[in-house]
Amino acid sequence: MNPLLFGYLAAAIIVFSALAVTRKNPVHAILFMIVMFFHLAVMYLGLDAEFLAAIQIIVYAGAILVLFLFVVMVLNIKEEMSGERFSSGWPLGISLAAGIFLLAIIMTGNVFPLGQQGIYTPALIASETHTKALGSLMYTQYIFPFELASLILLVAVIGAIVLAKKRLR
């Protein structure tokens, strides 16, 4: 990826994430989050993962954040805006976050061993298209984790239906 592009994207992602958590108006916070997701999608594009980029927009920006907006819009914004900006526990929160950040920096150095490299090189992915490469790996080598993830999602769906149902027979 072009270093100039990476620099811009990384800076923009940090700035928009910070804006998203500091806005008092929850609707503005969500809109900044959408902008952040767009930059993340472009980051995937730069890494030759075009399928992931499209899914990032369709699933996160197109569906999940619409539902977020849906919930936030029915809140009483005026009441939210007049309250305190942060809850009283913020010093503890900031120190915890800083601790986790430090831990992450230390861990990325040498604690985790690198995984075994697969057959897919950037050139092979470009010739075969990212969608095909991802699909063929997901449905052959990684079929068990894939099915496990879909089972977990299915449980969540059934849970939501049970909660929403007024009367159980």
Partner: peptide, 21 residues
């Protein structure tokens, strides 16, 4: 682009934001 159809779906899903906002 390789993901033309997905791109179209992604963009049409954004149309909802204009309306909600």
């Amino acid at each position: 682009i390789n993901i033309g159809l997905l791109f179209v779906l992604a963009m049409s899903s954004l149309g909802a934001y204009g309306i909600i906002m």
